[in-house]
Simulated assay, not measured.
Amino acid sequence: MSVNNRDIQLVSQVNKSVGISSTGSSSTTSSSCSTSLWSAPTSKFRRIDLPEALANYSTGHIHAVHIIFWFREPTTGMAYALMQIRSDGQFGFPGGKCDEPVVDEQEMMSALYREIWEEMDYRLGDGDITIGDHLFSHVRTHDEAKVLHFFGKQLTAEQFRHLELTHSHAESFPSETVGIIRIPLGQSDIGECRAVRKFFAGFGRQKFAGNARNQLLESIVALKLISPEDIQYVISRIV
């Protein structure tokens, strides 16, 4: 991902709000990624790029793939993202574990397509989601060793609403997931959005599954779905 002045401005404001220096370092986080990909400071996982994840951790670790679906309302320009409510009451993203003992890009995509079908009742066509939609990966080498791969995909308004209507017909409903919610993210170029701040004032107190809290924060920064003014507010409520 290329770095431009807006990326630098956004990440600089995010880092300042959570006490990360301009070099991306802090006492609570470590990241070797581009500065356009901010790393959440509360994560127990270390962010790594995909080649490192597959070269160094393809075996001996549990791999999981998840995705953030989002769209922009054509009439208002408002961005929304999708999250799930799991059967344990925690919030997370569509996705799940890879089945094969050795994980490569093909296995990642196979697992992601399978999980989206099982959890969302959404049949993807070939090429609808590709490895190019990968945003970042995280690794945890202590306790239960895991590698979490995260993707982001923009949908049309029609596709997004289709997911909202059909997810309750999915194979894993309601045994694994009991519903979905639409997360308001605002308009990245208009500054403060009252709807976003009102939502996150309460939503930040919810329980998130695994690394989902940090995946939400890092993905909305990486995809530039939220304004610099609002991202500082969101972090203050959710970190």
Rank of each mutant, 00 (worst) to 15 (best):
residue 84 Q to K: 04
residue 85 I to K: 14
residue 85 I to M: 10
residue 86 R to Q: 12
residue 87 S to M: 01
residue 87 S to D: 06
residue 87 S to V: 10
residue 89 G to Q: 05
residue 90 Q to S: 13
residue 91 F to M: 12
residue 92 G to T: 11
residue 92 G to R: 02
residue 92 G to L: 04
residue 93 F to H: 04
residue 94 P to F: 11
residue 95 G to L: 08
residue 97 K to W: 06
residue 97 K to S: 12
residue 97 K to R: 13
residue 99 D to L: 14
residue 99 D to G: 13
residue 101 P to N: 02
residue 103 V to C: 11
residue 104 D to Q: 06
residue 104 D to E: 08
residue 107 E to H: 12
residue 107 E to G: 00
residue 107 E to N: 09
residue 109 M to Y: 09
residue 110 S to T: 12
residue 111 A to W: 04
residue 112 L to C: 01
residue 115 E to N: 13
residue 116 I to S: 06
residue 116 I to N: 14
residue 118 E to Q: 12
residue 121 D to M: 02
residue 122 Y to S: 04
residue 123 R to A: 10
residue 125 G to A: 06
residue 126 D to I: 09
residue 126 D to P: 00
residue 126 D to V: 06
residue 127 G to Q: 12
residue 128 D to K: 13
residue 129 I to L: 05
residue 130 T to N: 09
residue 132 G to L: 05
residue 135 L to V: 09
residue 137 S to M: 04
residue 139 V to D: 01
residue 140 R to I: 13
residue 140 R to G: 12
residue 140 R to S: 14
residue 141 T to H: 05
residue 142 H to N: 14
residue 143 D to L: 05
residue 143 D to C: 00
residue 143 D to E: 14
residue 145 A to K: 15
residue 147 V to L: 08
residue 149 H to S: 02
residue 149 H to Q: 01
residue 150 F to Y: 10
residue 153 K to R: 13
residue 154 Q to N: 03
residue 154 Q to Y: 01
residue 155 L to F: 08
residue 155 L to C: 04
residue 155 L to Y: 03
residue 156 T to K: 02
residue 158 E to Q: 05
residue 159 Q to P: 00
residue 160 F to V: 01
residue 160 F to G: 05
residue 160 F to Y: 15
residue 161 R to S: 12
residue 163 L to Q: 09
residue 163 L to R: 05
residue 164 E to Q: 15
residue 166 T to D: 13
residue 166 T to Y: 11
residue 167 H to L: 08
residue 167 H to Y: 15
residue 167 H to W: 15
residue 169 H to T: 11
residue 169 H to I: 03
residue 169 H to W: 09
residue 169 H to L: 15
residue 170 A to N: 11
residue 173 F to M: 05
residue 174 P to F: 08
residue 175 S to L: 06
residue 175 S to F: 00
residue 176 E to H: 11
residue 176 E to C: 05
residue 177 T to K: 06
residue 177 T to V: 12
residue 181 I to A: 03
residue 182 R to I: 02
residue 183 I to N: 00
